[in-house]
Design a protein around this nucleic acid. Structure first.
Lengths: 357, 357
DNA sequence: ACGGTTTGTCGAAGCGCTTCGCCAGCGTCC
DNA sequence: GGACGCTGGCGAAGCGCTTCGACAAACCGT
């Protein structure tokens, strides 16, 4: 009379495997998790049954019983001024790394905002959270602190206390670009940066790069101008023209704006300035992009893949209650290609007080 | 003596809510799901307790009991020749729509391959699957057919039997571009397409666009050349130069390759061909991209957002066992901007047998 | 030969939720 | 006024898994 009979799911359960292998359910569980010693003989019988029946543990049941979902959340930005290909690279690196740690990735967009994070975490849908594109004073930071689940940030907020953050060392990246140009003898350079909105909302990487550029320029006695730059061709052209109007002797350009790279090259060509003969260009952009430009660009790539991998492994460490550093900054590396060359300008152009500006 | 005492999770459970509201657990459940009538009075008491305690249902428990995870999988490509920004737009549209249907999105990359899909589906981690970038003879298609979970494909495989597919009508898109150019009087045009690899692996959109272009050209008595095109600037330049070598009278260009658009414009400028005075250019690319180019490009955008929304709502329909059409093709729309204009070439150039080729 | 470990396995108690069946109380209709 | 149908609510049985404690059996040293 008890036949309440819900339809069986179709998928074999751990009980089916146990029955088929002639062991207890718990034994199957221990074989699969390896949390207790099981004899070779039993293990093999169980594994054979698993394969034969095509058994896959039910994720919900597992999560419920073990209090671990084996899923992490990835919060991606979808705003303007975002380097789309970098985000994609990053996302795929995260998914791939997470899989290596036997986790899946739940995708969230920033626009669901803080309460999205809360919902996910409180509902135990995910064990931890990866947040990308963190701003200096990000509203999500306080939330993350009290989330009750481990999290790792990509990017550096102003106050990193109690957090775990990973990012490229953009300050150093700015320096590296300048040092490269300075080493080639360039004495008047400019940084063509991200759109103004990106600076305005306090996005760390833009500010840090600019600071690095300015600092290194000062240190090397190089005159440096920094300018934000929108992402449309006309605007880029205007900015470049403006730069050369302000400083005709300009011979080095650092471009941290993927969308601007093409237009910059076009504009320089139109102005009759050859790259790298008259103007050297260093870009902060993905390697692939730099390779495909013409001439191939000397660049400092954002190592999205490595940041992704690092972020995941830091998060895994936190999930296992292991200690993690608060801040992990990756060393930038500059790849020299065909867009930079030694300065040819008259040395007189460098009058010794260039660093003053 | 029963105090086996696992640590309580910290999060309030449905039992806590029930106790606090002075009702049965099932009543709380019914209030929250709305699956049975509950009096206004009780409902309000329960909802108040929910808010007060900050209750969020446990996703795992819910999935286990209801056999629905309220999660869908999104399989994204990470191969070359992929229009990255389109993919991103698409992904965010999917996440946003899914949230509107009270679902979350699990991100998979194609490289985990078929067994990744199987793992996810068999483990009941997701209720349904969205697969992007489907090829004509995609290995995943047979798998999807036997997956036991609903799925929706973005893109059109050769055989759509028993499937549900959404895509832009690329064949029509090809036609629309040609019709626009033909309408402006252009009689010799070319399609600069995706990288050769994309055609080789049988990616539907590339083939369909090309077919549409060829078909419409034939129909309108326009001479059309189609050429694949790699994504680096030097290669693009070579292709464009080649095109004009083969056909000096060329006055219309359809570009279906986002990365090529910039270099195409640069090359045309270098060849002394003005856009749109000498050559009209139509691009198949995101609107944003077309807006940011200079001159602004007449374009047929891939409506990633709408495809994403459609895909999600089709999947939801399948999850509720409602019937869905096998193929949903979205009508392309062409936006005229500044890169196309009436042909100025000598009418003599059109000798009446142009359609022959 | 006998306590004491170790090793391998089992049974059962949940994890937090949904859903089914049941029933008390009411208004309704001949 | 008794049979009937609704409404609103309750209790309990799972969903499929993990994990704890128990416990035979094998193995040890003495």
């Amino acid at each position: 009379m008890s036949g309440r009979g819900r339809v069986p799911s179709g998928q074999p359960t751990i009980a089916d495997v146990a029955r088929h292998a002639g062991v207890a359910v718990s034994t199957v569980s221990y074989v699969l998790s390896g949390k207790r010693a099981i004899s070779e003989l039993t293990r093999n019988r169980v594994l054979a049954s698993v394969r034969l029946l095509g058994y896959h543990p039910n994720a919900g049941a597992r999560a419920l019983a073990s209090r671990r979902a084996n899923v992490i959340a990835l919060v991606l930005p979808l705003r303007s001024g975002i380097q789309v290909p970098v985000v994609m690279q990053f996302a795929t690196a995260v998914v791939t790394s997470a899989r290596r740690h036997d986790h899946d990735v739940l995708l969230l967009t920033s626009d669901e905002g803080p309460q999205g994070l809360h919902r996910i975490a409180a509902g135990a849908l995910v064990d931890g959270v990866l947040v990308m594109d963190v701003e200096l004073h990000d509203v999500r930071v306080p939330l993350l602190r009290g989330l009750g689940r481990p999290s790792v940030l990509i990017g550096l907020p102003a106050d990193t206390d109690g957090l775990t953050c990973v990012d490229l060392d953009f300050h150093r990246a700015g320096q590296v670009c300048v040092e490269h140009l300075a080493g080639l003898g360039h004495r008047r350079i400019a940084l063509l940066g991200a759109p103004a909105a990106v600076y305005d909302r306090g996005t760390g990487f833009a500010h840090r790069t600019r600071a690095g550029v300015v600092e290194a320029a000062t240190r090397h006695g190089v005159e440096a101008v920094t300018l934000p730059c929108e992402e449309n061709a006309a605007e880029v052209r205007a900015r470049v023209v403006e730069l050369f109007a302000r400083q005709p002797e300009l011979s080095g350009l650092v471009v941290q704006n993927e969308a601007a790279v093409g237009p910059v090259q076009a504009t320089l060509a139109a102005l009759g300035r050859r790259v790298p003969d008259d103007v050297s260009v260093v870009a902060v952009c993905p390697d692939q992009f730099a390779e495909h430009a013409s001439p191939r660009l000397t660049s400092v790539p954002v190592p999205a893949e490595e940041i992704g991998r690092q972020a995941v492994s830091l998060l895994m460490r936190k999930l296992h209650d292991e200690p993690t550093p608060q801040v992990t900054l990756l060393e930038p590396r500059l790849t020299v290609r065909d867009s930079t060359a030694a300065a040819t300008g008259t040395p007189a152009a460098y009058d010794g007080r260039a660093a003053a500006r």
